[in-house]
Nucleic acid binder design. Structure first.
Lengths: 298, 298
DNA sequence: AACCGAGTACCAGATAGTGGTACGGATGCC
DNA sequence: GGCATCCGTACCACTATCTGGTACTCGGTT
């Protein structure tokens, strides 16, 4: 928790120093064999990555092999073509990966993901804590917006707040880590519900209304929710509390399911419609960054 | 499905042919540099594996780096020592893995699992079908025991049978894929419940009794269940059906949770107490093999 | 101030990887 | 029965690639 800010600045500082690293690598990778280059271009790296760099070819190629299983089993010739490698080389790499249980071979099907990936995936998941992963991004968001930022997850029929960074403005957002707020009247709660079925929305909405949430017409609310679901973010237009508006977006886990949400809240005077539209992009970006760190690739 | 048996025999046949492969590899790997050997022995490969073989050193070392994160963050010097590599080499590998998002670096902590592993783990899980994975092991079990083999999962408060291989004996086990059987009176069901809390056992037991399961004293039943939980397998001593006995064991997923179970059933006349004890080992082994293919490493 | 961790850089040497080619067994298609 | 694939295995010459030294900078900790 403590090191998060410094981490951010350190990384920024270091990567922004120009140095002369790239020059050196250009030299090392200078191709004396034109064939290789031609093959590589024709093969996997179709996109304009152009950042080859590091220099552990065998390892990188091996990882390419693993990742090539992304959409189902692959045969050896396919694999070789896809990666732009020889059958010889491809086979050597695949065999090594099978021995390590990263891949599996099934006779008339081809190569597939192996058990080791399940094992490592589980271990990684176990060692991953959303709060810790999200912290740096929350801080960046807080820094650029100067408003209060929240991180929350779905907890039954409420939104549980896991982290909070107070804004720099002189507005008071009454909330504490550990609080549980209504889902249908807060921006964060709505973001958590974006993927749910409308039938579910209706139930939760009715519950919140019965529990004393500010009165609201369901038709209007559902119309807005559909728009939120479409755009990937949600608003709170002083629905939960007078003079407080907020913008939120969902965080997705490796499977694509919504596992948390981020919101930026402030006094209505700082939250013009225009600014909220701008913020929506920032919040979506931050949530997307966290999602990617949780293994989501969509 | 069809290929399973042939695959088995093929592998056995091929690997048992002596050939002269090892000789060649010995030549290729013959160390002209004694230091390397010393370092390797002192390093990671403490166990007597002695099957170095394949020959994609860089890839294998890279995988070693990944797997070294198994129990929490590691610093670079630690990592280097653990793998028996130079700081130089270790750093190069780790950097490549970070670039590919297999690892993450956190300033005052060290290297850790990266998002890519979550991503791949999820994809692998998605592409893994228990029935398909278990098939070859069920077939092997059926072949060696000559009895009927079942694969089943927990489905609410019942055991759902997902696969069946009929035995070669002239006994009739009435069951079909898709059947849902009671949990507390079948071997397979009990195996699925082995990890549950005793309070849960009591509830399910009462339900089954009320639903017309053969009458049984709960104290006796729970006593047996505790023994089953201890030993990792379960029996059905003609509890569900007269003259039918069975031996079962649970299959665990990557997280260690029980995700399915295997059972071997036969007429009581073929199921002496001695034989059941022997079978318990076989069934546990088969279930263990499937578990390992599902990412379980315990 | 001294220490330790990480990132970056450079380099000489030779290991380890590459890509060709080839053969045999298995399987499925025609 | 032939014929075409696909995989495993093997061998080999070439050299690109990896390795393990060493060294310096920058931070943070003690």
């Amino acid at each position: 928790m403590v090191h998060a800010v410094s981490q951010m600045s350190v990384i920024l500082a270091v990567t922004e120093i120009p140095y002369y690293g790239k020059e050196c690598y250009k030299m090392r990778n200078a191709p004396s064999n034109p064939d290789l280059v031609a093959r590589k271009v024709a093969g996997a790296s179709v996109e304009g990555e152009a950042k080859a760099s590091t220099g552990s070819q065998t390892l990188l190629r091996g990882l390419d092999v693993i990742e090539a299983m992304g959409d189902g089993p692959v045969t050896l010739p396919d694999l070789a073509v896809r990666l732009g490698l020889t059958r010889s080389t491809t086979h050597r790499l695949a065999t090594a990966l099978i021995e390590r249980r990263y891949l599996t071979f099934t006779p008339r099907l081809g190569y597939q993901f192996g058990p080791k990936l399940l094992e490592l995936g589980f271990l990684a998941q176990r060692q991953t804590d959303i709060v810790q992963v999200a912290r740096p991004h929350l801080e960046e968001l807080a820094a650029t917006t100067e408003d209060t930022v929240h991180l929350g997850v779905l907890d039954g029929e409420r939104a549980l707040y896991l982290d909070k960074i107070a804004g720099r403005r002189r507005v008071d957002i009454r909330s504490r880590v550990g609080d549980r707020h209504p889902l249908t009247s807060t921006g964060l709660g709505k973001a958590l519900l974006i993927d749910h079925a409308p039938e579910n929305w209706a139930v939760l909405f009715a519950q919140d209304q019965a529990a004393g949430a500010p009165a609201m017409d369901y038709a209007v609310w559902e119309g807005r929710m559909r728009a939120y679901a479409q755009s990937g973010h949600s608003f709170d237009l002083e629905e939960n509390e007078d003079l407080i508006r907020c913008v939120a977006a969902p965080i997705r886990g490796a499977g694509g399911a919504i596992v948390a949400a981020i919101s930026v809240s402030s006094a209505a005077q700082y939250m013009s419609d225009d600014r909220m539209a701008d913020l929506a992009q920032d919040v979506r970006d931050a949530a997307g960054a966290v999602s990617r760190e949780l293994g989501w690739s969509g």
